[in-house]
Amino acid sequence: MGSLTAPEVGEEALDPDAGAWDSIPSEGVPLVPVPIEAQLNAYVRAAWTGRDYGRSGPVELALARCGGRLLARLSWDGSAVPPGEFTDAAGLLLPREPGTASPVTMGTHAEPVSLWQWRDRLASQQGLPSAKYLVSTGPGVFRPVPAGGEVSARSSRAGARWSVVLAGPAEALATGSVGVAVWDGANAERAGIGAVCATWVEVTP
């Protein structure tokens, strides 16, 4: 996989449809299902072994900086099915230490990773934040960052294609690599059941 840059942009780039993104190089990031053997939860293993999931992707990923924030634009083909119980979601994974092993398990207990997670909201959920700053220590083992982690997201949809810009503190890119994950809501994907990149994408300073 190649590497990305994160050029400085203006506030308008918080909009996923802003023209500013046209001139920023992007990378097609292939995704794989989070391995069933990696699921730490006996119930999830019992319920999902042999079921199809994690088929989303690739994600077209571009990065930018805006003031002290890192902006990540993710674009991918979502499901054409309207949301039922579960909605589509996507996330940016950021290793918290250099040399963190593959993002395919969404971090481990020994090597936590940051997860900026956007989730499409149902009509009744418009009061909820558009994105969360989480720490992930395994597939679906997500905990909120207690304080100081402000992440926001804006999304747009053209047909089945989602475009989402996640924005959060630029320090999170300290290790110089990122990963992505996508959850197909129509397939009841959530937590550790989803699609993730198997290798980190390097970001050139």
Partner: peptide, 11 residues
């Protein structure tokens, strides 16, 4: 801490 995954409801 609940992320709304709802595996509890299934289980």
């Amino acid at each position: 801490a609940c992320q709304g995954a709802r595996f509890c409801m299934e289980a």
